[in-house]
Design a protein around this nucleic acid. Structure first.
Lengths: 225, 225
DNA sequence: AATCAATAAGTGATTAGATCTCTTGTCGCC
DNA sequence: GGCGACAAGAGATCTAATCACTTATTGATT
């Protein structure tokens, strides 16, 4: 029952053509619409929240978070990420993302390419650290999507979201200080490889990019670097 | 709040050392224990159900499903899997599992090796189709776990669970008819490669194994094969 | 005029206890 | 010995009121 309710709400989002950020009817109204009591509706809403479909904000309302139903979703109950786990996540990304970059170099269309170019520019010019990281995330997800394999792309997005959760704690006005010019150079390199359809180059550049990140995390374990 | 409740129940499972299949206290008792009303507790339980931690059976009770918290979980709200999506899942497994098999060949210990041997034997002798498929699943998850990369192993498990959901519909007494001797041979081959620590051979055999599955699904699209 | 603080309306969060439905084990009949 | 009815246990849902948080508005202060 609570299952059908959840599907019903998803269907309602689809029918009304609501997009991310749009507000849904109030919980009471939804309950009334589906002819159930509010606690019952809330159970269904909790599931949709757990799977990343909606966002429930106390006192404010219920908002669409994602319209696409993913095959796999990040576990909202997973606690703090230990350094060892972050390394394993990066190992996973190191296997998958270079592969996706190579596929993307073969499949990408001009629209996606333009989006990536824009995001590379943004990342290079961002001042606030949170905006910079956000652009960075978009860069990776855009490439993953461009590969054509939705399953792997959603997996990568889920992995990235796992640390984005902790990222929300970061002061949004914090300024970037350390040089990230190296990152920007590699971004540019990957973009160029995608443009020219050079799969091998895209794969290698992406692998180097992630390897850098992995080493930076790895040095936390052995701080004498 | 419903968040802390969910964590509290997980903690309770840990403290009481409950394992998969064990029954939890009744919903009313849980609510009382955490000093909340039953609908509030139910919201938390729904989330744990959505993330695969517990199993709620109407009229029967609440049962532990998995004690380990996964980084990613299969989306319970995902509908029927279309053939195209199944192919993309197999493409994903085709990237990840040969890699994990190779890692496993290097890292595996004798205990895990013994478990795999047993499961290979079981799969070869199973009569009922559901038991056979279950052994098959265990074979793949055991190898994925033996790789040492939990993140990728959990991803593979999640992908497999996505079609296992539909598998529950299969009549448990259905008998196997078609020859699966080819599967068994490859299982044996992978097992041998793991035993001898031959990573390359393990990778190749796993890739061929999955490729076979992919072609079998692919032929559904173009039935003139 | 601009800014900030108090306020009120809207909305999610939680509560209590009663009732319904489903599962499962048991008891008794055949 | 087996099968069906029954009863106890447990999850599912409901009702309706109250609490808590957000947000926009309004009015006072500077």
């Amino acid at each position: 029952m609570s299952n059908q309710l959840a599907n019903g709400v998803v269907e309602l989002i689809r029918q009304r053509e609501l997009g991310p950020g749009d507000r849904l009817p109030t919980a009471r109204e939804l309950a009334e619409t589906f002819e159930v009591a509010t606690p019952t509706m809330r159970e269904a809403l909790r599931r949709l929240q757990a799977t990343g479909v909606i966002d429930i904000r106390h006192g404010s309302g219920i908002y669409v978070r994602r319209t696409e139903q993913r095959l796999v979703v990040p576990n909202p109950g997973y606690g703090e990420l230990e350094t060892f786990t972050i390394l394993q996540i990066l190992d996973a990304r190191l296997l998958v993302e270079p592969h996706l970059a190579e596929l993307a170099a073969r499949n990408i269309d001009s629209i996606a390419l333009a989006k990536i170019e824009r995001v590379v520019q943004q990342a290079a010019n961002e001042v606030r650290i949170r905006d910079y990281l956000e652009s960075n995330v978009r860069f990776h997800t855009l490439i993953a999507r461009a590969s054509g394999n939705l399953v792997l792309a959603q997996f990568i997005e889920s992995l990235i979201e796992l640390y984005s959760v902790e990222l929300d704690q970061v002061d949004p006005n914090l300024k970037l200080v350390d040089g990230r010019s190296a990152d920007n150079a590699v971004h540019q390199e990957i973009y160029t490889a995608l443009t020219s359809g050079n799969g091998r180059a895209a794969r290698d550049a992406m692998a180097r990019h992630l390897q850098t990140a992995r080493q930076s995390v790895s040095s936390r374990l052995v701080p004498d670097s």
